[in-house]
Computed example of a mutant assay.
Amino acid sequence: MEPATIPPALELRGLAKRFGDKIAVNGISLTIPTGSCYGLVGPNGAGKTTTLSMATGLLRPEFGQALISGIDVWEHPTEAKQLVGVLADGVKLFDRLTGEQLITYTGLLAGLDAETVARRCADLLTMLDLRDAGTTLVVDYSAGMTKKIALACALVHAPRLLVLDEPFESVDPVSAANIRDILQGFVRGGGTVIVSSHSMDLVQRMCDHVAVIASGRVLAAGTVDEVRGGSTLEDRFVELVGGRQHLEGPTWLNHS
């Protein structure tokens, strides 16, 4: 008897989305292996957030499919969303709740019983160094604390796949290092992480796979070593995306 093949954690098949006359995503296809830490990089307006929103059931694509562990996100949304935790960029939280209440609310919505939610909430607040802020309203959190409480909400139901849109933006270096440790432990435990980030250095150090996206298309995808070739990921990114002008600035900025 042949062993069962493990489907990809996430498979995108020709995803496309238009906003008015602007094509935001133009037929993106990607395969994210189970157990990988996958970086998604691209300039502002490249289509990263739109792609991740379509992949996780937040935004309906005009064309294409998104499958989480082989389950079509738009044909079977309830089953697919049970498998994924999402930290979405720019999506409002219920910030008139305390941090503890927000995690609890999210866990109960995911179908967990109250005892399990309470135990996991305490673990997450401790793990993310938010224990003292658990009784503070989220509206009073700093930007970095807000990112961390959103990550706690994405983790509370123990998903198989984590999709994180700019998770390190506004996060201090110590918290960022702690979050990286948490995500690496999640991957070692069999989970899969997708990280959208502008930090090439962070992606190169943290991820084993990467895709470069620009103008709604995939320019390169594969392992980090395959994509960057013999250079750094940042140099390869600039080469693929283009646009660097090597400007020195106007003469009126010179003081010598």
Rank of each mutant, 00 (worst) to 15 (best):
residue 2 E to K: 14
residue 6 I to S: 13
residue 9 A to Q: 03
residue 16 A to F: 05
residue 21 D to L: 12
residue 29 S to Q: 01
residue 31 T to C: 02
residue 33 P to L: 09
residue 45 G to D: 15
residue 47 G to P: 06
residue 50 T to W: 03
residue 52 L to Q: 09
residue 54 M to K: 02
residue 67 L to T: 00
residue 70 G to S: 05
residue 74 W to A: 11
residue 82 Q to R: 15
residue 82 Q to V: 08
residue 83 L to Y: 02
residue 84 V to M: 07
residue 87 L to I: 09
residue 89 D to S: 06
residue 90 G to Y: 05
residue 93 L to E: 08
residue 97 L to R: 15
residue 99 G to W: 05
residue 99 G to R: 10
residue 122 A to R: 15
residue 122 A to I: 07
residue 123 D to K: 07
residue 124 L to G: 08
residue 124 L to V: 04
residue 131 R to Q: 13
residue 132 D to T: 02
residue 132 D to W: 00
residue 133 A to K: 06
residue 134 G to C: 06
residue 135 T to W: 03
residue 136 T to G: 01
residue 148 K to A: 09
residue 152 A to P: 02
residue 152 A to D: 07
residue 158 A to L: 07
residue 164 L to A: 10
residue 164 L to H: 08
residue 165 D to G: 12
residue 166 E to C: 03
residue 167 P to A: 02
residue 179 I to P: 05
residue 184 Q to P: 00
residue 184 Q to S: 10
residue 194 I to C: 01
residue 194 I to W: 04
residue 195 V to D: 03
residue 198 H to Y: 07
residue 199 S to W: 00
residue 199 S to H: 06
residue 203 V to Y: 08
residue 204 Q to E: 15
residue 208 D to T: 14
residue 208 D to H: 09
residue 217 R to P: 01
residue 219 L to R: 03
residue 220 A to C: 06
residue 227 V to Q: 11
residue 230 G to L: 04
residue 233 L to F: 10
residue 242 G to D: 14
residue 247 L to T: 14
residue 253 L to V: 12
